[in-house]
Design a protein around this nucleic acid. Structure first.
Lengths: 219, 219, 219, 219
DNA sequence: GATGAATGAGTCTTCATTCAT
DNA sequence: TATGAATGAAGACTCATTCAT
């Protein structure tokens, strides 16, 4: 653990607290995103961060604290990125598209952040799981509001429940597409966003306008 | 869910191997789905299964082996359930709908199975993650084939890459909707499947027919 | 830790649970009495007991649990020893003497037990400290009752508060004398008990009969 | 208790060494008496003292050094207090009484000091334990000398050994009574001292004059 | 075949102690 | 002088895994 890789963070001694904290959080996000909460060890995190474990604990508390801090930081980053991308005054479809574009942009640029957030969102257990579920719920509600707004503006009244289901589907589609995109990164974030818009927005438009798909008569 | 009514672990001694194995796997799926891979302990699994740990190891090998076996069994069940629901000769949309209906039906009836498969599919690390990713990849390819087939039959040539992305989105949408549905179980599996069809198939149809959504001129 | 002392408890494998438990408790009492609660380490205890730490935890729970169990066992032993020595029907002085004799007898035969009980009774902190304090309190009350009974039988009415203070003094005298005796073990338990009786009982008799000591006029 | 009103750790920089040291020792005594040696942490002590840890170490050395210094200071204080109370020329009983009165007076006014001395005196381990034991031994010898002197002056020759045992008992009685008194502080120090005198001195007088208590003939 | 008993290895966490500024 | 920053070493506790009966 010593002589084996003297290359990494030069064990730069005596950094100011804020810098060290960022350093540690970066390392923690990297390790958590690679291994998940349980499999990640404080030993490895401290090693990657280039500090000793006592510092890790002094700065960021227990493993759970550290993880929560990571998640909060990454979530904030992502929310800000999306918030920055959205144009509040525009039509719902444009807003959604901007949001998606910003989302894919963020995912493309912060793989590790996205993975910590997404991988752990599923993995139940721990107090953060709930927090992440809540966050996801808020995203779904936001999208649902956009859909609703769009439908309303076309004079159609859907039950909100319906809309939430659709929003959940859309969010899931976005997540899944994001993962897929990371493995097939041929397109730009904007292109992927467009793709999802085409799949979903058009279908939603059809729905709103009453063009629906029907299962075959005899099921 | 089937994990919850095994042969009632009466500590019945000297059961035939196959029965014992099923008993153990049922217990393991229950525990894994409740706690996730890492947090689940062999102690708890053996206790829930009503056997001693040495037997657990004798029958199903290491924890990783056991988990892999669980996943394979549940995946097979799910694949079979979907395969049984699909009607090969039908039109692509009907096939897709049947598949979705079968999928939601399975999820509704086998919560634990679904959770082991889905929750852990993300949580990377371990060798099984790859297996699950592969499985998911196959599902995506299958859906992509359906989409392709449908497009072809309408005389349109899309790059397969495009179609795979859409398929990934669709699969993700299905997963997400499934999770959402488990928390809001007001509708039947068929209804949820219809919902997703409406969202996606119509949009796909538009796409195929050239009605596309365009981002606003100045991005 | 392996090759360094292959002599101790022959690592006798596969002992029945009850035996192991006693073995462990004996070791724990030895270590706790030598080092005190905090300085004792579970590592050392398990080593002295000739088992691995997991067994230690499996059998006796956490360090606090283990310590509590030790204390309870030793306290029970001591209480039983004293209870066996006392003759309920006799005169108060005889009862007290019997009790003291039994007490010193126990201390002489179970040095470690006595040290765990006494050393830790003072050392505050932990939940057991309270328990031990209570136990000591009961001993004091018991002695106070004897004194009271004796005084009553001589027709003298003292405030109970007074008597409790005397009893506390007597108990402390006993403890201190016990420690001193362990370092100067020339006499028998009975002789030491007699010594304490002589010091205390006679004085108490004087007190009861009104022969009191007065501080010099001008303090 | 003096530990509770130090120069109010205003983080006043550049204090003369002696003042700083007193400040630190006050804090250390407070913490040690509250938590015991092991549970006390240098972090907490330095915080209570209002200085940084490096200063703590610079001024008073290791934790053990610090503890030893605490004990020595408190012991010295107590010895001085008792020495000041005693009147060398007086009769043995008066001397003893003065000593006891001074002792209880000290305990009443310096709870923390007394607790560090007494609580830790038992908890063996560490080099200070020996020191404390020695100190206690000196107290016992002192008392023994007084008893002896008194006996001599009445023309009775007891083995010193005997007297030392009695002295040990007396000292223990004093300690125990002190603890009890701290929990039932209804009387003045002088009154408690009188109480102990009455219990012990009278008994000792009887002893000296040959009135002894005899165990019952049989058993 | 079945299990109570056993453990090596590892995890999180803290503490006394010391540089480098 | 005074301290924020840093760490080696250890301690409590758990888990996957395997004998010996």
């Amino acid at each position: 653990m010593h002589a084996e890789e003297p290359i990494r963070p030069v064990r730069a001694k005596r950094l100011p607290r804020a810098v060290r904290e960022r350093q540690i959080l970066d390392a923690a996000v990297a390790v958590f995103s690679r291994l998940g909460f349980h499999a990640a060890s404080m030993d490895e995190i401290s090693e990657v961060a280039g500090i000793s474990k006592p510092m890790l604990y002094a700065y960021l508390g227990s493993k759970e604290d550290l993880f929560a801090t990571c998640i909060r930081r990454e979530a904030t980053l992502m929310i800000e990125a999306i918030g920055d991308g959205v144009r509040p005054g525009e039509a719902p479809d444009v807003q959604l598209w901007c949001g998606l574009r910003a989302f894919f942009g963020f995912v493309g640029e912060h793989r590790a952040s996205w993975q910590v957030l997404h991988r752990q969102a599923s993995s139940q257990g721990g107090p953060f799981a709930q927090e992440l579920a809540d966050m996801r719920g808020r995203a779904i509600s936001l999208v649902a509001a956009l859909l609703m707004h769009s439908a309303d503006s076309q004079g159609v009244g859907h039950a909100s429940r319906d809309t939430e289901g659709l929003a959940a589907a859309l969010v899931g589609a976005g997540e899944s597409l994001a993962d897929w995109w990371l493995d097939h990164p041929e397109e730009s974030a904007a292109a992927v966003a467009s793709r999802l818009m085409n799949l979903v927005w058009m279908g939603f438009g059809d729905l709103v306008e009453g063009r629906v798909w029907h299962p075959p008569a005899k099921g």
